[in-house]
Design a protein around this nucleic acid. Structure first.
Lengths: 212, 212
DNA sequence: GGCACCGCTTGATCTGGATCAACGGGGGGG
DNA sequence: CCCCCCCGTTGATCCAGATCAAGCGGTGCC
């Protein structure tokens, strides 16, 4: 098997100060058909980091300068959601547990088997695909919500609250006809063909919008 | 501080074959105001297990007979979602990672500090409160969905799909009037005052019901 | 400065379709 | 007998879409 992972700019990013291990990993992954980029330190990875990167990260825990764990934290602060696989020399249970609880895909000890690593890479990429798609959908909805004018947004909220056009007009102190105009524009901008779709849309975009 | 944790039948379940540690834990937790039940083996806990138990579990990993990990698996098979804290003598990173990935709250090594344990207990109970409340709401909705007749359910699905009464009547081969009757009954049974509420309800009850 | 253009908001009329509410009825099965 | 499913009428209400129009604020061009 080789070069079959179709995905676009997907890449496996390796950060480890041990050149031998880096080379070994690069070889393993490239020969499995992945695109790979290796860095010898957290700092050099951060320097090259782009929010648009996709794929997954393999981080050495212990490195001179910024550790893998610190890099992980830093990336989370930057809202980077790339899946992370930690590799470490000496096992440390609390550290491993903490990392996984914070969202790391796994935390494995050296030496590890090729098969294990490949399995984790696949798990990571799968995770990335899902969250990525999820975020994309939500982002699109949020974008559309952002396209609404203030008034349209107010009308939308009242629609979601289950109010009738008449009631909306009442609350906003405008005529029913105007509400209908706004409503129509909202439906158009949100790309919804029915009230049901509209509600589903908005609920996907923001979890906290209930009752009326 | 003592006896302040108001919750109803909440209880900390401890499963460990080491009597000394059991006693120590029971003392710590009880003096912190928690209700505690201790068991000396996975088997004895399973024998006493009731699906209605609430609170959290503290499991020793290594025990004669069924291990803590096996008990964990068994409980998950039984759809028990009690949060689980593992305690173990010798740290084993892969095992710890695996447990946490499968949903364990934490995996700590003996000896551990009282403060750490109490922190984890609180984290567990918090987790339990959330998931519990979540499941309760969903269960209520599912129950109501179950009260619907076959026909009402079909109509509901088409309503969610954004179909008009006319279209629904067409699809089901019945008259619009009949659809209206079903629709009204659905709204009544689901306790929804508007289409928006209905959609929110159903979406909360089952995540996979889109497009039409 | 003035004026035209654009977008947001507001409003109206009319037409036609959709929905609601409240009545009426019939047929079938446990 | 009750419940479920089916269907109808009437009148009121609601919603959608097209068309027309006006005030207001900002942008830009002359």
């Amino acid at each position: 098997m080789s070069t079959s992972h179709e995905e676009p700019d997907q890449c496996i990013y390796i950060v480890d100060d041990d050149e031998a291990l880096r080379d070994s990993l690069v070889w393993l992954l490239e020969s499995s058909g992945y695109r790979v980029c290796a860095y010898d330190s957290s700092e050099s990875f951060l320097a090259a980091y782009q929010p648009r990167m996709t794929g997954c990260l393999v981080l050495d825990v212990r490195m001179p300068g910024m550790s893998g764990l610190e890099l992980f934290e830093e990336l989370r602060l930057r809202h980077c959601s790339l899946p992370v696989i930690f590799i470490t020399g000496h096992g440390d249970v609390p550290m491993a547990v903490s990392a996984v609880k914070r969202g790391a895909v796994d935390f494995i000890e050296k030496p590890f088997g090729d098969r294990d690593m490949l399995g984790l890479i696949e798990e990571s990429l799968e995770r990335e695909r899902n969250s990525r798609q999820q975020r994309q959908v939500e982002a699109e909805i949020v974008r559309r919500l952002g396209d609404l004018t203030q008034r349209e947004r107010e009308v939308l909220d009242l629609i979601i609250a289950g109010k009738l056009n008449k009631q909306i007009a009442d609350v906003l102190g405008i005529s029913i006809k105007t509400v209908e105009v706004h409503r129509a524009r909202v439906m158009e901008k949100m790309g919804a063909n029915s009230l049901a779709e509209l509600v589903q849309c908005v609920m996907t975009g923001e979890p906290g919008a209930l009752r009326g």
